[in-house]
Design a protein around this nucleic acid. Structure first.
Length: 114
DNA sequence: AATGTGACTGACT
DNA sequence: AAGTCAGCCACAT
């Protein structure tokens, strides 16, 4: 019932993944942030899924602390069992249900915009 | 062109 | 707390 008139141009897509990596690079050790926060921060709200896609498939994501990105409820990436130990090594604590204790470790990139 | 698939979210149960 | 669901949007088939 709705069509999507404005899709990302190739150059926008390029800028998008570049911006995603730039933000992720600034997540401090011991903290995490979410796909949605990143998307909103770089000017593409509603593109949380694309942030996930970028971190999963974009070459270069390995050179950035992408293990510090979890979903809105603190769940780690499906199929990436190493993520939790990596976070715990940095001091990130998990709740009994296996979710990151967001109240304690969520990093909200507020003053990042400059 | 149409349909299926996610490293997602928010609302609701 | 844990599921379900509709909405989401780029991509693969």
């Amino acid at each position: 019932m709705r069509d999507y008139p404005s899709r990302m141009t190739p150059q926008q897509a390029r800028a998008f993944s570049e911006d995603v990596l730039n933000v992720v690079a600034q997540i401090p050790c011991g903290s995490v942030t979410t796909y949605g926060h990143i998307a909103a921060l770089i000017g593409w709200p509603s593109h949380a899924r694309m942030v996930g896609r970028t971190l999963r498939y974009t070459p270069g994501a390995e050179q950035v602390p992408c293990h510090r990105v979890v979903n809105a409820v603190g769940r780690t990436a499906p199929g990436w069992s190493a993520q939790r130990p990596m976070l715990e090594r940095e001091g990130v604590t998990f709740k009994a249900n296996g979710h990151v204790d967001m109240a304690r470790h969520l990093w909200e990139p507020e003053e990042l915009i400059q």
